[in-house]
Computed example of a mutant assay.
Amino acid sequence: MTTQAVDNAITEEPLHCPGPESEDAGAGDACNSCNYQQFCSSNNNLPKVEDPDIQLIKDNLSCIKNKILVLSGKGGVGKSTFSTLLSFLLSSDPELNIGLLDLDITGPSIPKMIGTMSDKSNATLHMTNNGLIPNYVQDNLATISIQYLLPSLDEAIIWKSAKKETMIKKFLKDTLWNDLDYLIIDTPPGTSDEHILINKLLNKTQSVTGAVLVTTPQEVSLNDVRKEINFCQKVGIRILGLVENMAGFVCGSCNKKTDIFKATTGGGEALCNEFNIPYWGKVPLDPRLGICCDQGESFIDLYPESEATLKLVEIVEKLMDQCEI
Rank of each mutant, 00 (worst) to 15 (best):
T3K: 14
V6Y: 13
N8Q: 15
N8D: 14
N8K: 15
I10M: 11
T11D: 14
L15V: 14
E21N: 15
S22I: 05
D24V: 02
G26C: 10
A27D: 09
S33T: 13
N35D: 14
Q38K: 15
N45K: 15
N45T: 15
N45E: 15
K48I: 11
K48P: 07
E50Q: 13
I54M: 09
Q55C: 09
S62H: 06
K65E: 12
N66L: 00
L69K: 00
G73R: 03
G73A: 11
V77R: 01
G78K: 06
G78M: 07
K79I: 07
F82T: 02
S83D: 11
T84Q: 08
L85T: 02
L85M: 12
F88A: 03
D93P: 04
P94L: 11
E95L: 09
L96R: 13
L101C: 01
D104W: 03
D104H: 10
D104L: 05
T106F: 10
P108E: 03
M113Q: 14
M113R: 11
I114V: 15
K120R: 12
A123C: 10
A123T: 11
L125F: 10
L125P: 05
H126D: 11
G131Y: 04
L132D: 02
Y136G: 04
V137K: 00
V137E: 01
Q138I: 04
D139E: 13
N140T: 08
S145P: 03
Q147W: 01
Y148R: 00
Y148G: 00
L149T: 12
E155M: 10
A156L: 06
A156F: 04
I157R: 01
I157V: 14
W159F: 10
K160R: 15
K163P: 06
K163N: 12
K163W: 05
K169Q: 05
K170Q: 15
F171Y: 11
F171D: 00
T175Q: 04
N178L: 10
I185R: 02
D186Y: 01
D186Q: 03
P188N: 09
P188D: 07
P188L: 09
T191R: 06
S192L: 09
N199R: 09
N203V: 03
K204E: 14
T205C: 11
S207F: 03
T215C: 14
T215Q: 09
K227G: 09
K227P: 08
E228N: 09
F231G: 00
Q233N: 15
Q233W: 10
V235S: 08
G236N: 12
I237L: 12
I239Q: 01
L240Q: 02
L242S: 00
L242K: 02
L242E: 00
E244R: 07
N245E: 07
V250S: 00
G252W: 05
S253A: 14
K256M: 06
D259V: 04
F261A: 00
A263R: 05
T265G: 08
T265D: 11
T265L: 13
G268D: 03
E269H: 12
E269T: 04
C272T: 07
N273V: 06
P278A: 07
Y279K: 07
G281Y: 04
V283C: 11
R288I: 06
R288T: 08
I291K: 14
D294V: 05
D294K: 05
E297G: 01
S298V: 03
F299L: 05
F299T: 04
I300N: 00
E305L: 12
S306K: 05
E307K: 12
L312Q: 01
V313K: 15
E314L: 07
V316S: 01
I325D: 09
